[in-house]
Design a protein around this nucleic acid. Structure first.
Lengths: 243, 243
DNA sequence: TAATATTTGTACGTATGTATG
DNA sequence: TCATACATACGTACAAATATT
């Protein structure tokens, strides 16, 4: 075997970093879409002139950003490009600083409320009858689940997602979804909502739909504020309880 | 001392996944803060009963989320918990779909405008004299740089950051910063702004500060709208030019 | 300033688990 | 059931960056 000296590699910039960029470039240059397969590890090692270790570490970095998705025994594929990384970051921050976690939760709620109130006009003018009906169905489901004591987390999520959908702003939709996920993970620290607050929240959902159907921006904004009022109270109470 | 746990190896569930969770738990349990050192790779391997490869892949995942930061030859530390992962995700999406990149840029601008307009009341009532003066200084710098043809990207960034600062909502501040970074990376595809648009933008900055000083919410909101108008026009033009 | 130890980065070989046909 | 392709995991060795003496 030849003892060829490997060409002085750009040790300047870390190899792993370079490999990461090259994989991203590969995806972009080949116009790949989420779900499309990438070359196998062996092939990528060969193509990028890197060892398995370096390549795999690069891939793990990209996987954390949901730029690629690795399926054991199957292969590596282009990821969904979701905001899962944002969820990870924010939840970790929430869990890290016990005391700031409520602060983070409040920040989150404020942004969600800002989205829904700031976009009130556009939401109302863009919701069509089919979407309004679907929203009403979801409110009905909320009421039923609330009555039977079932968890209505999923339904609540679906409601707000459908609300933002017609905006045509994918970033807002995905941020809303991400914030929701973070909230669902961090919120248990708040303690459960009582029946009264739950009823208040559900009623606010119905008020939002009714306001939307009658194209009443003022009423809609008021309903949104009422919707977030119980959560804000709980956060405030939890913050006080801590001090 | 350390409070790590030595679980029986979950060899059937992904080891790397378990290791990442354990490292996160280590940081949380020990109340570590950004910049604090973590045990060396060797020590972590020992403590978590994992090979160095697996451990490193786990660390790379956490590094991508800015939960840890690795310094060659020095050690591993708790990361800054920034939203750098969000920036990575969004910029990649922008670069991936040439055609949707303008759409993403527009989404971004909409959210930024939504933040500044939706928070107008709070921004205005919370800005104190010192901050207003600093904002005026920044506007002056913008005007000067615009006149001499220098890049005022940094100054622009500083202006908007200072504007959102007094809100007390860290999430909004960091999202604003992240969006700004994404914009700076993707925007070059739009082509440079001409002198006229630049002047328009700078003038809008001054109008924002003046409105804030006279506590005029309506005028402030109008100035914000005027501020984003040139960018919106450029995005619209670029979108049309593509079709 | 220089030598040395510590720590992370890269490479490679081997064995094993997992999905697919 | 079997075979193949692929990712996962481990261990060792050495290179490169940094810290320490």
């Amino acid at each position: 075997m030849r003892t060829e000296i490997k060409p002085a590699r750009p040790s300047r910039a870390l190899l792993r970093q370079a490999v990461t960029e090259q994989i991203k470039a590969y995806i972009i240059d080949n116009r790949l879409k989420p779900g499309d397969p990438l070359p196998t590890e062996a092939e990528l090692c060969e193509a990028l002139n890197a060892s398995r270790s370096s390549l795999r570490e690069a891939i793990k970095t990209l996987a954390a950003l949901d730029i690629v998705e690795v399926r054991h025994g199957s292969g590596t594929f282009v990821g969904r490009l979701s905001l899962s990384a944002l969820v990870e970051s924010l939840t970790f921050r929430g869990l890290l600083s016990p005391g700031d976690d409520f602060r983070i939760l409040l920040d989150l709620i404020e942004v969600r409320q800002l989205f829904e109130q700031g976009m009130a006009t556009r939401i109302i003018e863009r919701l069509d009858d089919a979407q309004l009906s679907k929203l009403e169905d979801l409110v009905g489901e909320l009421e039923q689940r609330s009555a039977t004591g079932e968890s209505f987390v999923e339904t609540d999520h679906a409601f707000h997602h459908l609300l933002m959908q017609p905006l045509g702003n994918q970033l807002i939709c995905q941020l809303t979804g991400a914030f929701w996920d973070v909230y669902a993970i961090v919120a248990p620290h708040l303690g459960m909502a009582n029946r009264e607050e739950e009823a208040e929240t559900v009623a606010a959902h119905r008020a939002m739909v009714e306001a939307a159907r009658s194209r009443d921006v003022e009423a809609f904004a008021a309903a949104v504020a009422a919707h977030y009022a119980p959560v804000r109270r709980r956060i405030a109470a939890a913050t006080r309880a801590e001090e």
